[in-house]
Design a binder for these strands. Sequence first.
DNA 1: CTCGTGACGGGGG
DNA 2: TCCCCCGCCACGA
Length: 130
Amino acid sequence: MVSINQRPREAPSYRQRVYDLVLRIPAGRVMSYGQIARVLGIGYDARAIGNIMHATPDDEPAIPWHRVINAQGGCSTSGLTLPPDLQQRLLEAEGVVFNEKGRCRISEYLWYPPEYHPTESPESPLFPMN
DNA sequence: CTCGTGACGGGGG
DNA sequence: TCCCCCGCCACGA
């Protein structure tokens, strides 16, 4: 495990910021890749978050990677080294309900870090749509 | 340094 | 709703 923990304690790396946030997602709740990117701010985007999460199991086994799904409410882990249905099963074990198409009502499970105060206005680019 | 590759997302047809 | 296309960006070759 070429852990990021071995990195000296400087400014948190891009990965570390992502991991720190994912670590805080409560069981039974989820965040989408894009949502994480928006919470972290400029320079982060959904695709990059996905790349990082892909490496997570090897990197940091303790990180609840399964609580990060796509904005459509589905799991994006098809055809990898991981069992295709693993992520969904882990979430179901935490009470998340998926339909026959493998999608959950994401709005019911979304979690936002408490210190993050998104604008109330749906007009705002920071409004937490997903 | 450049290039290809995604566990993405949103818009359009 | 599904599908396709394209912008986005960290990472490894």
